[in-house]
């Protein structure tokens, strides 16, 4: 166990070192920074989605929070002139508030019900933003978003990248602290068996709402970061693909682990861009789909469990291989 922890530590340090050093090695390369920034933002988003699953809940509509975070942060920054460094957190808070509301409706629902209701909220919120509150949101025209750091600052993209990276590290450490605390224990009790958890004095409703709020908060934060990075927000942000990506990243990386969403986001994004440079169009989606199906069936704990699985299976394969040779 200790051995394993140390490995995880090494791995974390190595990944972080890579993330920190990479821009210094390659110099100011906008393309690499673009890819890295988007990866880091989606790591925050996927981790926030994944956080919800710790409490035994799931969501098919996290684009709702991602988008609300983006909109609220942008609108406040535009109207008040506050720096986006502050408004992104307000955006997150707005998303958390909506998350609390949706969570309160969903808290007694399970699995499919929850999936559908969250999905539905994303659809409803898109209609509200695009067609109902046009005077505030700009409707389909959208709103231009102020950048995190003005592009008149030299090398601003590097600072932006490090800011976002720092936020991601803090977020993941925070998740880690929460999950290692009593709250984390309560989550796993609820996840395993809600009735038993209740019997042992845990109030599932409170914990589930808490999980929903935290998850919505950081999804909103990720959305706010993306929007201030892209510089423009339109109702398309509530699209189904935005809801699906964090799920795909988390599952392929490994549900219910901190490393899962991180590894999943990195691997799938690189694979995605790599397949594109090979000129695959529809094929790319098919490959991602097949990977998803295979992971769920054969690697239910995701890519993070791959080394373990290989280690466990290796003797079997070796034996088979030897048998094949001896024939």
């Amino acid at each position: 166990m200790i051995e394993k922890n140390r490995v995880v530590l090494y791995l974390t340090v190595a990944t972080l070192a890579f993330a920190v050093l990479f821009p210094l090695v390659t110099g100011l390369n906008m393309y690499y920074l673009t890819v890295l920034i988007l990866i880091v933002i989606f790591i925050i988003f996927a981790s926030a989605w994944n956080f919800l699953t710790y409490s035994g809940q799931g969501s098919l509509g996290h684009a709702a929070f991602f988008g609300i975070g983006g909109y609220i942060s942008t609108l406040i920054a535009v109207k008040s002139g506050l720096t986006p460094y502050l408004t992104i957190f307000i955006g997150g808070a707005g998303a958390a508030l909506v998350g609390l509301f949706i969570g309160a409706i969903c808290v007694r629902m399970k699995e499919w019900f929850l999936a559908m209701v969250t999905f539905g909220f994303a659809v409803i919120i898109q209609v509200l933003v695009a067609s109902q509150f046009v005077s505030v949101t700009g409707g389909w025209d959208g709103v231009a978003a102020p950048p995190l750091i003005s592009n008149t600052v030299p090398n601003y993209l590097v600072y932006e990248y490090y800011s976002i990276l720092l936020i991601a590290v803090v977020v993941i450490l925070l998740f880690r602290t929460i999950l290692n605390s009593k709250i984390g224990l309560a989550f796993s009790a609820i996840r395993e068996n809600e009735l038993e958890a209740r019997a042992s004095g845990i109030d599932p409703v409170r914990y589930k709402l808490f999980a929903f709020m935290v998850s919505a908060y950081f999804s909103g934060l990720a959305g706010a970061l993306e929007i201030s990075y892209l510089g423009y927000v339109t109702p398309e942000i509530f699209g189904v693909d935005i809801s699906f990506w964090p799920i795909i990243y988390s599952i392929s990386g490994g549900l219910g682990t901190l490393a899962g969403p991180i590894i999943g986001t990195i691997v799938i994004t690189l694979l995605w861009d790599g397949l594109q440079s090979l000129g695959l169009t529809y094929g790319r989606f098919i490959i991602i789909g097949i990977i998803l199906v295979l992971v769920v069936i054969f690697l239910p704990r995701g890519l993070v469990s791959l080394p373990e699985v290989i280690k466990k299976r290796a003797p079997v394969w070796k034996a088979r291989f030897n048998k094949l040779l001896s024939k």
Binding site: E3, K4, R6, V7, Y10, L11, A14, L306, P307, I310
Partner: peptide, 12 residues
């Protein structure tokens, strides 16, 4: 154990 992780990282 350790090696596999390092290998994984290098691979990535």
């Amino acid at each position: 154990m350790k090696h596999t992780y390092v290998l994984l990282l290098i691979g990535m």
